[in-house]
Write a protein that binds this DNA or RNA. Structure first.
Lengths: 204, 204
DNA sequence: GATCTTGTGTTAAAATATTAACAGTTCGAC
DNA sequence: GTCGAACTGTTAATATTTTAACACAAGATC
Protein backbone atom coordinates (compact mmCIF):
# COMPACT_ATOMS: atom_id res chain seq x y z
CA UNK A 1 0.00 0.00 0.00
CA UNK A 2 2.27 2.76 1.17
CA UNK A 3 5.65 2.90 -0.48
CA UNK A 4 7.66 1.88 2.52
CA UNK A 5 5.78 -1.05 3.92
CA UNK A 6 7.64 -4.28 4.51
CA UNK A 7 6.20 -7.36 2.78
CA UNK A 8 4.19 -9.41 5.22
CA UNK A 9 6.17 -12.54 4.55
CA UNK A 10 9.42 -10.75 5.25
CA UNK A 11 8.13 -9.25 8.44
CA UNK A 12 7.24 -12.70 9.60
CA UNK A 13 10.81 -13.87 9.12
CA UNK A 14 12.55 -10.89 10.66
CA UNK A 15 12.20 -12.07 14.26
CA UNK A 16 13.67 -15.38 13.20
CA UNK A 17 16.73 -13.67 11.80
CA UNK A 18 17.01 -11.50 14.84
CA UNK A 19 16.90 -14.44 17.15
CA UNK A 20 19.52 -16.28 15.18
CA UNK A 21 21.84 -13.32 14.90
CA UNK A 22 21.66 -12.70 18.61
CA UNK A 23 22.55 -16.30 19.32
CA UNK A 24 25.82 -15.88 17.46
CA UNK A 25 29.02 -15.53 19.46
CA UNK A 26 30.33 -11.97 19.90
CA UNK A 27 33.45 -12.77 17.95
CA UNK A 28 31.45 -13.30 14.82
CA UNK A 29 31.59 -9.80 13.39
CA UNK A 30 30.19 -10.58 9.97
CA UNK A 31 27.94 -13.18 8.48
CA UNK A 32 26.84 -14.12 5.01
CA UNK A 33 23.29 -14.49 3.82
CA UNK A 34 24.22 -17.94 2.64
CA UNK A 35 25.19 -18.96 6.14
CA UNK A 36 21.99 -17.61 7.63
CA UNK A 37 19.97 -19.36 4.98
CA UNK A 38 21.63 -22.65 5.74
CA UNK A 39 21.12 -22.31 9.47
CA UNK A 40 17.45 -21.50 9.14
CA UNK A 41 16.92 -23.70 6.10
CA UNK A 42 15.69 -20.99 3.80
CA UNK A 43 16.80 -20.00 0.34
CA UNK A 44 19.88 -17.80 0.28
CA UNK A 45 18.34 -15.38 -2.17
CA UNK A 46 15.33 -14.98 0.02
CA UNK A 47 17.48 -14.08 2.99
CA UNK A 48 19.38 -11.57 0.94
CA UNK A 49 16.17 -10.03 -0.27
CA UNK A 50 14.73 -9.79 3.20
CA UNK A 51 17.85 -8.18 4.53
CA UNK A 52 17.88 -5.74 1.66
CA UNK A 53 14.51 -4.44 2.81
CA UNK A 54 15.63 -3.54 6.28
CA UNK A 55 19.32 -2.98 6.10
CA UNK A 56 22.09 -1.58 3.97
CA UNK A 57 24.39 -3.44 1.70
CA UNK A 58 26.57 -6.39 2.47
CA UNK A 59 30.02 -6.89 1.12
CA UNK A 60 30.90 -9.63 -1.32
CA UNK A 61 33.06 -12.39 0.09
CA UNK A 62 32.41 -10.96 3.59
CA UNK A 63 28.69 -10.73 4.12
CA UNK A 64 26.92 -8.40 6.50
CA UNK A 65 28.00 -6.79 9.72
CA UNK A 66 26.18 -8.67 12.43
CA UNK A 67 25.89 -5.71 14.74
CA UNK A 68 24.43 -3.43 12.15
CA UNK A 69 22.07 -6.13 11.01
CA UNK A 70 20.76 -6.64 14.51
CA UNK A 71 20.28 -2.94 15.07
CA UNK A 72 18.52 -2.50 11.77
CA UNK A 73 16.14 -5.37 12.29
CA UNK A 74 15.41 -4.19 15.78
CA UNK A 75 14.54 -0.76 14.58
CA UNK A 76 12.25 -2.08 11.89
CA UNK A 77 10.56 -4.30 14.38
CA UNK A 78 10.08 -1.41 16.75
CA UNK A 79 12.25 -2.97 19.42
CA UNK A 80 14.21 0.11 20.30
CA UNK A 81 11.53 1.61 22.50
CA UNK A 82 9.75 -0.57 24.99
CA UNK A 83 6.00 -0.80 24.62
CA UNK A 84 4.13 -1.34 27.86
CA UNK A 85 1.71 -4.24 28.00
CA UNK A 86 -0.71 -5.67 30.51
CA UNK A 87 -1.93 -9.21 30.76
CA UNK A 88 -5.40 -10.21 31.86
CA UNK A 89 -6.10 -13.66 33.23
CA UNK A 90 -3.67 -15.12 35.72
CA UNK A 91 -4.28 -18.76 35.06
CA UNK A 92 -1.45 -21.17 34.29
CA UNK A 93 -0.80 -19.84 30.85
CA UNK A 94 -1.15 -16.25 31.99
CA UNK A 95 1.35 -16.62 34.77
CA UNK A 96 3.75 -18.44 32.53
CA UNK A 97 3.72 -15.53 30.12
CA UNK A 98 4.04 -13.02 32.96
CA UNK A 99 7.19 -14.69 34.13
CA UNK A 100 8.55 -15.31 30.68
CA UNK A 101 11.28 -12.80 30.15
CA UNK A 102 11.86 -13.19 26.45
CA UNK A 103 9.46 -10.47 25.36
CA UNK A 104 11.58 -7.53 26.31
CA UNK A 105 14.09 -8.54 23.68
CA UNK A 106 11.40 -7.78 21.17
CA UNK A 107 10.40 -4.44 22.58
CA UNK A 108 7.47 -5.40 24.73
CA UNK A 109 7.37 -5.17 28.48
CA UNK A 110 4.55 -6.71 30.46
CA UNK A 111 4.20 -4.31 33.35
CA UNK A 112 1.42 -5.99 35.29
CA UNK A 113 -1.11 -8.77 35.33
CA UNK A 114 -4.80 -8.49 36.14
CA UNK A 115 -7.34 -10.97 37.38
CA UNK A 116 -10.84 -10.95 38.73
CA UNK A 117 -9.41 -11.76 42.11
CA UNK A 118 -9.87 -8.77 44.41
CA UNK A 119 -6.69 -9.12 46.40
CA UNK A 120 -3.37 -8.04 45.04
CA UNK A 121 -1.00 -10.89 44.44
CA UNK A 122 2.72 -10.50 44.31
CA UNK A 123 3.72 -14.09 44.11
CA UNK A 124 5.66 -14.20 40.87
CA UNK A 125 7.93 -11.57 39.50
CA UNK A 126 5.11 -9.20 38.66
CA UNK A 127 2.08 -7.90 40.49
CA UNK A 128 -1.33 -9.25 39.75
CA UNK A 129 -3.93 -6.59 40.36
CA UNK A 130 -7.72 -6.69 40.52
CA UNK A 131 -9.33 -6.17 37.15
CA UNK A 132 -11.41 -3.18 38.21
CA UNK A 133 -8.30 -1.04 38.48
CA UNK A 134 -7.22 -1.76 34.95
CA UNK A 135 -8.41 1.39 33.23
CA UNK A 136 -6.75 3.74 35.67
CA UNK A 137 -3.60 1.69 35.55
CA UNK A 138 -3.41 1.64 31.77
CA UNK A 139 -3.91 5.37 31.47
CA UNK A 140 -1.32 6.08 34.11
CA UNK A 141 1.31 3.81 32.68
CA UNK A 142 0.69 4.51 29.03
CA UNK A 143 -0.09 0.91 28.23
CA UNK A 144 -0.52 0.23 24.53
CA UNK A 145 -0.92 -3.49 24.36
CA UNK A 146 -3.21 -5.96 26.10
CA UNK A 147 -2.77 -9.70 26.35
CA UNK A 148 -5.80 -11.84 27.03
CA UNK A 149 -5.38 -15.23 28.66
CA UNK A 150 -8.77 -15.70 30.27
CA UNK A 151 -11.30 -18.39 29.43
CA UNK A 152 -13.78 -18.17 26.59
CA UNK A 153 -16.56 -16.83 28.74
CA UNK A 154 -15.07 -13.54 29.76
CA UNK A 155 -12.75 -12.83 26.85
CA UNK A 156 -15.05 -10.38 25.09
CA UNK A 157 -15.74 -8.50 28.32
CA UNK A 158 -12.05 -8.20 29.01
CA UNK A 159 -11.47 -7.10 25.47
CA UNK A 160 -14.05 -4.33 25.75
CA UNK A 161 -12.53 -3.19 28.98
CA UNK A 162 -9.10 -3.04 27.40
CA UNK A 163 -10.40 -1.01 24.51
CA UNK A 164 -12.02 1.42 26.93
CA UNK A 165 -8.71 1.71 28.67
CA UNK A 166 -7.18 3.10 25.53
CA UNK A 167 -5.24 0.06 24.41
CA UNK A 168 -4.04 0.00 20.79
CA UNK A 169 -3.50 -3.67 20.17
CA UNK A 170 -4.70 -6.94 21.62
CA UNK A 171 -3.05 -10.33 21.65
CA UNK A 172 -5.68 -12.90 22.34
CA UNK A 173 -5.02 -16.43 23.55
CA UNK A 174 -8.62 -17.23 24.32
CA UNK A 175 -10.18 -19.51 21.72
CA UNK A 176 -12.85 -17.01 20.76
CA UNK A 177 -13.14 -14.56 17.93
CA UNK A 178 -13.24 -11.11 19.44
CA UNK A 179 -14.94 -7.99 18.20
CA UNK A 180 -12.80 -4.91 18.25
CA UNK A 181 -13.55 -1.45 16.94
CA UNK A 182 -11.64 -0.10 13.98
CA UNK A 183 -8.26 1.24 14.90
CA UNK A 184 -7.55 -1.47 17.42
CA UNK A 185 -5.25 -4.20 16.21
CA UNK A 186 -6.11 -7.78 17.05
CA UNK A 187 -3.86 -10.78 16.84
CA UNK A 188 -5.37 -14.11 17.51
CA UNK A 189 -2.98 -16.65 18.95
CA UNK A 190 -3.96 -20.23 18.87
CA UNK A 191 -1.44 -22.65 20.19
CA UNK A 192 -3.60 -25.55 19.22
CA UNK A 193 -3.40 -24.29 15.67
CA UNK A 194 0.29 -24.96 15.37
CA UNK A 195 -0.18 -28.37 16.81
CA UNK A 196 -2.96 -29.14 14.42
CA UNK A 197 -0.73 -28.16 11.57
CA UNK A 198 2.05 -30.43 12.74
CA UNK A 199 -0.32 -33.25 13.35
CA UNK A 200 -1.69 -32.93 9.86
CA UNK A 201 1.77 -33.09 8.36
CA UNK A 202 2.67 -36.20 10.31
CA UNK A 203 -0.43 -37.99 9.13
CA UNK A 204 0.50 -36.79 5.66
CA UNK B 1 3.16 -30.63 -5.93
CA UNK B 2 1.15 -33.80 -5.50
CA UNK B 3 -2.37 -33.63 -6.75
CA UNK B 4 -4.11 -33.78 -3.42
CA UNK B 5 -2.20 -31.42 -1.24
CA UNK B 6 -3.99 -28.58 0.50
CA UNK B 7 -2.61 -25.11 -0.15
CA UNK B 8 -0.43 -24.04 2.74
CA UNK B 9 -2.35 -20.86 3.26
CA UNK B 10 -5.61 -22.75 3.47
CA UNK B 11 -4.21 -25.26 5.90
CA UNK B 12 -3.24 -22.39 8.15
CA UNK B 13 -6.79 -21.13 8.24
CA UNK B 14 -8.53 -24.44 8.75
CA UNK B 15 -8.01 -24.55 12.50
CA UNK B 16 -9.47 -21.10 12.72
CA UNK B 17 -12.60 -22.20 10.93
CA UNK B 18 -12.79 -25.28 13.06
CA UNK B 19 -12.55 -23.31 16.24
CA UNK B 20 -15.21 -20.90 15.13
CA UNK B 21 -17.58 -23.58 13.95
CA UNK B 22 -17.26 -25.45 17.21
CA UNK B 23 -18.07 -22.31 19.14
CA UNK B 24 -21.41 -22.05 17.37
CA UNK B 25 -24.54 -23.09 19.27
CA UNK B 26 -25.87 -26.55 18.52
CA UNK B 27 -29.06 -25.12 17.11
CA UNK B 28 -27.18 -23.56 14.24
CA UNK B 29 -27.47 -26.34 11.71
CA UNK B 30 -26.16 -24.44 8.73
CA UNK B 31 -23.93 -21.47 8.14
CA UNK B 32 -22.93 -19.39 5.16
CA UNK B 33 -19.43 -18.67 4.02
CA UNK B 34 -20.31 -15.01 4.16
CA UNK B 35 -21.15 -15.24 7.84
CA UNK B 36 -17.93 -17.06 8.62
CA UNK B 37 -15.97 -14.50 6.65
CA UNK B 38 -17.54 -11.67 8.58
CA UNK B 39 -16.89 -13.27 11.95
CA UNK B 40 -13.25 -13.92 11.18
CA UNK B 41 -12.81 -10.81 9.08
CA UNK B 42 -11.71 -12.57 5.93
CA UNK B 43 -12.96 -12.31 2.39
CA UNK B 44 -16.08 -14.34 1.71
CA UNK B 45 -14.68 -15.76 -1.50
CA UNK B 46 -11.61 -16.93 0.30
CA UNK B 47 -13.66 -18.80 2.86
CA UNK B 48 -15.70 -20.43 0.15
CA UNK B 49 -12.58 -21.47 -1.65
CA UNK B 50 -11.01 -22.93 1.45
CA UNK B 51 -14.12 -24.86 2.28
CA UNK B 52 -14.31 -26.13 -1.26
CA UNK B 53 -10.93 -27.78 -0.78
CA UNK B 54 -11.93 -29.83 2.22
CA UNK B 55 -15.62 -30.25 2.02
CA UNK B 56 -18.51 -30.78 -0.35
CA UNK B 57 -20.86 -28.24 -1.75
CA UNK B 58 -22.95 -25.72 0.09
CA UNK B 59 -26.46 -24.73 -0.85
CA UNK B 60 -27.36 -21.29 -2.08
CA UNK B 61 -29.29 -19.18 0.38
CA UNK B 62 -28.62 -21.80 3.04
CA UNK B 63 -24.88 -22.23 3.24
CA UNK B 64 -23.09 -25.28 4.57
CA UNK B 65 -24.07 -27.91 7.08
CA UNK B 66 -22.09 -27.08 10.18
CA UNK B 67 -21.77 -30.66 11.33
CA UNK B 68 -20.47 -31.92 8.05
CA UNK B 69 -18.09 -29.00 7.82
CA UNK B 70 -16.64 -29.72 11.24
CA UNK B 71 -16.22 -33.38 10.46
CA UNK B 72 -14.59 -32.67 7.15
CA UNK B 73 -12.13 -30.16 8.53
CA UNK B 74 -11.29 -32.48 11.39
CA UNK B 75 -10.53 -35.28 9.05
CA UNK B 76 -8.33 -33.12 6.87
CA UNK B 77 -6.50 -31.88 9.90
CA UNK B 78 -5.95 -35.37 11.17
CA UNK B 79 -7.97 -34.83 14.31
CA UNK B 80 -9.90 -38.04 14.18
CA UNK B 81 -7.12 -40.12 15.65
CA UNK B 82 -5.22 -38.86 18.67
CA UNK B 83 -1.48 -38.45 18.27
CA UNK B 84 0.52 -38.97 21.42
CA UNK B 85 2.95 -36.25 22.43
CA UNK B 86 5.46 -35.70 25.17
CA UNK B 87 6.69 -32.41 26.53
CA UNK B 88 10.21 -31.79 27.77
CA UNK B 89 10.96 -28.96 30.17
CA UNK B 90 8.65 -28.47 33.12
CA UNK B 91 9.22 -24.79 33.69
CA UNK B 92 6.36 -22.35 33.91
CA UNK B 93 5.57 -22.45 30.24
CA UNK B 94 5.96 -26.19 30.08
CA UNK B 95 3.59 -26.81 32.93
CA UNK B 96 1.09 -24.39 31.53
CA UNK B 97 1.03 -26.33 28.29
CA UNK B 98 0.84 -29.63 30.13
CA UNK B 99 -2.26 -28.48 31.93
CA UNK B 100 -3.78 -26.82 28.92
CA UNK B 101 -6.54 -29.05 27.70
CA UNK B 102 -7.26 -27.46 24.36
CA UNK B 103 -4.92 -29.61 22.32
CA UNK B 104 -6.99 -32.74 22.31
CA UNK B 105 -9.62 -30.95 20.28
CA UNK B 106 -7.04 -30.80 17.54
CA UNK B 107 -5.99 -34.40 17.73
CA UNK B 108 -2.95 -34.17 19.96
CA UNK B 109 -2.69 -35.64 23.40
CA UNK B 110 0.21 -34.79 25.68
CA UNK B 111 0.69 -37.99 27.59
CA UNK B 112 3.55 -37.01 29.86
CA UNK B 113 6.07 -34.37 30.73
CA UNK B 114 9.80 -34.83 31.24
CA UNK B 115 12.38 -32.87 33.12
CA UNK B 116 15.94 -33.29 34.25
CA UNK B 117 14.65 -33.68 37.76
CA UNK B 118 15.20 -37.25 38.91
CA UNK B 119 12.14 -37.65 41.02
CA UNK B 120 8.76 -38.25 39.53
CA UNK B 121 6.36 -35.40 40.03
CA UNK B 122 2.63 -35.77 39.93
CA UNK B 123 1.62 -32.34 40.97
CA UNK B 124 -0.41 -31.18 37.99
CA UNK B 125 -2.76 -33.24 35.93
CA UNK B 126 0.01 -35.15 34.25
CA UNK B 127 3.11 -36.94 35.43
CA UNK B 128 6.50 -35.37 35.05
CA UNK B 129 9.12 -38.05 34.62
CA UNK B 130 12.91 -37.97 34.64
CA UNK B 131 14.37 -37.30 31.23
CA UNK B 132 16.51 -40.43 31.15
CA UNK B 133 13.40 -42.57 30.82
CA UNK B 134 12.18 -40.75 27.76
CA UNK B 135 13.30 -43.12 25.05
CA UNK B 136 11.75 -46.16 26.64
CA UNK B 137 8.58 -44.24 27.33
CA UNK B 138 8.25 -42.97 23.81
CA UNK B 139 8.73 -46.36 22.25
CA UNK B 140 6.28 -47.97 24.62
CA UNK B 141 3.57 -45.37 24.14
CA UNK B 142 4.03 -44.82 20.43
CA UNK B 143 4.77 -41.13 20.84
CA UNK B 144 5.02 -39.27 17.57
CA UNK B 145 5.41 -35.69 18.66
CA UNK B 146 7.76 -33.90 21.01
CA UNK B 147 7.32 -30.46 22.52
CA UNK B 148 10.39 -28.64 23.75
CA UNK B 149 10.05 -26.00 26.44
CA UNK B 150 13.51 -26.03 27.97
CA UNK B 151 16.01 -23.18 27.96
CA UNK B 152 18.35 -22.42 25.12
CA UNK B 153 21.22 -24.34 26.58
CA UNK B 154 19.77 -27.80 26.50
CA UNK B 155 17.33 -27.53 23.63
CA UNK B 156 19.55 -29.21 21.05
CA UNK B 157 20.39 -32.05 23.43
CA UNK B 158 16.75 -32.63 24.14
CA UNK B 159 16.01 -32.48 20.46
CA UNK B 160 18.59 -35.14 19.68
CA UNK B 161 17.22 -37.32 22.41
CA UNK B 162 13.73 -36.99 21.02
CA UNK B 163 14.90 -37.92 17.57
CA UNK B 164 16.62 -40.99 18.97
CA UNK B 165 13.41 -41.89 20.65
CA UNK B 166 11.72 -42.18 17.29
CA UNK B 167 9.74 -38.97 17.33
CA UNK B 168 8.37 -37.78 13.99
CA UNK B 169 7.80 -34.10 14.66
CA UNK B 170 9.05 -31.48 17.06
CA UNK B 171 7.40 -28.33 18.30
CA UNK B 172 10.07 -26.09 19.69
CA UNK B 173 9.45 -23.18 22.05
CA UNK B 174 13.09 -22.62 22.89
CA UNK B 175 14.55 -19.59 21.15
CA UNK B 176 17.15 -21.58 19.28
CA UNK B 177 17.32 -22.93 15.79
CA UNK B 178 17.48 -26.68 16.05
CA UNK B 179 19.13 -29.17 13.77
CA UNK B 180 17.01 -32.12 12.87
CA UNK B 181 17.70 -34.92 10.45
CA UNK B 182 15.65 -35.26 7.29
CA UNK B 183 12.33 -36.87 7.85
CA UNK B 184 11.71 -35.18 11.16
CA UNK B 185 9.36 -32.24 11.04
CA UNK B 186 10.27 -29.14 12.98
CA UNK B 187 7.98 -26.28 13.88
CA UNK B 188 9.54 -23.35 15.58
CA UNK B 189 7.22 -21.49 17.88
CA UNK B 190 8.25 -18.09 18.94
CA UNK B 191 5.81 -16.30 21.14
CA UNK B 192 7.95 -13.22 21.11
CA UNK B 193 7.60 -13.22 17.36
CA UNK B 194 3.90 -12.51 17.45
CA UNK B 195 4.48 -9.78 19.94
CA UNK B 196 7.16 -8.24 17.83
CA UNK B 197 4.82 -8.25 14.90
CA UNK B 198 2.11 -6.49 16.86
CA UNK B 199 4.56 -4.04 18.26
CA UNK B 200 5.77 -3.19 14.82
CA UNK B 201 2.26 -2.55 13.61
CA UNK B 202 1.49 -0.24 16.51
CA UNK B 203 4.57 1.82 15.87
CA UNK B 204 3.60 1.83 12.23
C1' DG C 1 -45.42 -17.24 -10.43
C1' DA C 2 -42.53 -12.93 -10.88
C1' DT C 3 -39.06 -10.76 -8.33
C1' DC C 4 -35.82 -9.71 -4.81
C1' DT C 5 -32.30 -11.18 -1.66
C1' DT C 6 -28.80 -14.08 -0.02
C1' DG C 7 -25.84 -17.41 -1.28
C1' DT C 8 -22.88 -20.55 -4.13
C1' DG C 9 -19.19 -21.91 -7.56
C1' DT C 10 -16.18 -20.82 -11.23
C1' DT C 11 -13.23 -18.36 -14.17
C1' DA C 12 -10.23 -14.60 -14.89
C1' DA C 13 -7.23 -10.83 -13.17
C1' DA C 14 -4.11 -8.79 -9.88
C1' DA C 15 -1.05 -8.88 -6.25
C1' DT C 16 2.55 -11.39 -3.54
C1' DA C 17 6.08 -14.39 -2.74
C1' DT C 18 9.59 -17.65 -4.20
C1' DT C 19 13.06 -19.42 -7.20
C1' DA C 20 16.37 -19.18 -10.81
C1' DA C 21 19.90 -16.85 -13.57
C1' DC C 22 23.58 -13.86 -14.05
C1' DA C 23 26.73 -10.04 -13.83
C1' DG C 24 29.70 -7.63 -10.74
C1' DT C 25 32.93 -7.24 -6.20
C1' DT C 26 36.20 -8.38 -3.02
C1' DC C 27 39.55 -11.14 -0.95
C1' DG C 28 43.23 -14.74 -0.78
C1' DA C 29 46.50 -17.62 -3.12
C1' DC C 30 49.64 -18.31 -6.34
C1' DG D 1 48.77 -8.77 -11.01
C1' DT D 2 45.85 -12.80 -12.45
C1' DC D 3 42.78 -16.41 -11.18
C1' DG D 4 39.33 -18.57 -8.63
C1' DA D 5 36.17 -18.86 -4.82
C1' DA D 6 32.67 -16.81 -1.98
C1' DC D 7 29.39 -13.40 -1.91
C1' DT D 8 26.19 -9.69 -3.15
C1' DG D 9 22.43 -7.34 -5.76
C1' DT D 10 19.31 -7.16 -9.49
C1' DT D 11 16.33 -8.61 -13.02
C1' DA D 12 13.38 -12.00 -14.93
C1' DA D 13 10.52 -16.20 -14.61
C1' DT D 14 7.37 -19.10 -11.69
C1' DA D 15 4.39 -20.32 -8.45
C1' DT D 16 1.11 -19.21 -5.07
C1' DT D 17 -2.52 -16.35 -2.94
C1' DT D 18 -5.90 -13.06 -2.92
C1' DT D 19 -9.40 -10.26 -5.05
C1' DA D 20 -12.76 -9.23 -8.38
C1' DA D 21 -16.50 -10.36 -11.60
C1' DC D 22 -20.27 -12.86 -12.97
C1' DA D 23 -23.76 -16.39 -13.88
C1' DC D 24 -26.80 -19.20 -11.62
C1' DA D 25 -29.77 -21.52 -7.53
C1' DA D 26 -32.95 -21.56 -3.75
C1' DG D 27 -35.94 -19.66 -0.61
C1' DA D 28 -38.96 -15.56 0.81
C1' DT D 29 -42.34 -12.08 -0.35
C1' DC D 30 -45.87 -10.19 -2.55
Amino acid sequence: MNGYSIPKATLGRLPQYLEYLRSLPEIRRTISATAIAKALSLGDVQVRKDLAVVSGAGKPKIGYETDKLITDIESHLGCERLTNAVLVGAGKLGRALLDYDGFEDFGVKIVAGFDCNETVLTKGTKDILPIRDIEVYCREHDVKLGIITVGQGSAQDVCDKLVESGIKAIWNFAPVTLNVPNGVLLKQENLALSLAYLNNQISK
